[in-house]
Design a protein around this nucleic acid. Structure first.
Lengths: 217, 217
DNA sequence: TACTGGTTTAACCAGTTGGTTAAATCCGAT
DNA sequence: ATCGGATTTAACCAACTGGTTAAACCAGTA
């Protein structure tokens, strides 16, 4: 994002707005040009065609999204503190530009492998000894007896799902509870506490070593 | 869905496929006609225009989605059993047609109030004494001391988020773990167990009434 | 038989869209 | 002054899209 001219940045910013709002097919080159304050000819002068422009926006968006929650992750800490930090950063990051999520989610599947590959590439750079850093950290916590023996992958799915969902369901939520705003600091704090409490109590080591598991169902 | 002719059903089915796959803007009337095995003229003969066809598909999809997890909900049971049933049905229902989710999610926000209103309408029919039935059931469980005093709304968000996320992240998951298929019975069962265990342990009543809470952060 | 409604065919239309082109202009650097 | 890249203007094009239309066809049926 640095090696670009001011103009290119303005164009990309405009393109980002329109693509996120209307989607790949709904977006119009004319509208992008308008929002960038230039004309269509100049738009094509910088980005040869819609496809190229879209690809650029998408790649940039994915990169920004992933880096947003993989940066500044404390390594040498208790698992509890790790969780705390992760949830905090994750919520904050998404709250900053929540529109991105549904956009990525949509393009993820409709774009076929293209987006998926981009995602994997970016994710692999944050891997710890070949594993997704969240998985690695959870496994470590289990081995050290900090938490009970859970399926790491399942815990990751639960964790991210809990963080993500309020933003995805935002339109419904604001319809049912008009006063609720998922991006407000107030809600974010409550959400964070709820997630941490639920997960933390949910992954405590089993106190008694006997077969006192109450298996659901 | 009953008062329709066979032909209309075939058309709607085709339209559903294309709209879910390509989205509202990406969908082409010609392709819908092709998949329905008819020609464009006849397509317009039944559904005057794209908008009408789309609206029909969307409404039907939302209705089906909501009814899918509000039907067959046991009322007179322990909260644990209630949770068990709900998670089970919810996962099963979504696994049956997982493509619907990202479609609804996208249209939810881009369609503005239209979709939101549809959602609220359908949801209100399942309300228990004016409240969303999940909220009502959680509050009841709290009052009866079955679970600790949590914010019901937050618990709902956690619950649904945990169930939904694997399907949303499917493209990423299948990219990072090629063997993982969120719709397979095997995974569904593991997911269900993981969710129930995590939540159940997470909402147990606090054993000791003293101030022995370890507040996160 | 004649009528009816579903169905096809195929052409057609108007509007939109992505993209191009050519000429003119603007502006800072050489 | 001039040279090159940035920028505008405005016209243009081919392709596509949603939608229409008219004529014919085909089934059942009254």
């Amino acid at each position: 994002m640095d090696h670009l001219t001011e103009q290119e940045k303005r164009i990309l910013s405009a393109a980002r707005q329109v693509f996120l709002e209307k989607g790949r097919d709904g977006a119009r080159m004319q509208e992008i040009a308008n929002r960038a304050g230039i004309n269509k000819a100049l738009l094509h002068y910088y980005f040869r065609n819609k496809e190229k422009l879209y690809a650029t926006v998408l790649r940039e968006e994915i990169r920004s999204f992933i880096q947003g929650f993989t940066r500044s992750i404390p390594e040498e800490n208790t698992f509890r503190e790790f969780l705390n930090q992760f949830v905090h950063h994750y919520l904050q990051h998404i709250a900053r530009k929540p529109e991105v999520i549904r956009f990525l989610l949509w393009e993820l599947e409709s774009g076929g492998e293209r987006v998926g590959t981009l995602f994997r590439e970016e994710l692999q750079q944050t891997a710890v000894s070949g594993k997704f850093f969240l998985l690695a950290r959870i496994e470590q916590a289990i081995q050290q007896g900090e938490i009970r023996s859970v399926d790491p992958l399942q815990l990751v799915l639960s964790l991210i799902g809990m963080c993500l969902y309020p933003f995805l369901a935002r339109p419904i939520l604001s319809m049912v509870f008009p006063s609720l705003n998922p991006t407000s600091p107030d809600f974010l704090e409550r959400r964070k506490q709820a997630i941490l409490e639920l997960i933390w109590k949910g992954i405590q080591p089993d106190p008694s070593p006997d077969a006192n598991r109450d298996k659901p169902d």
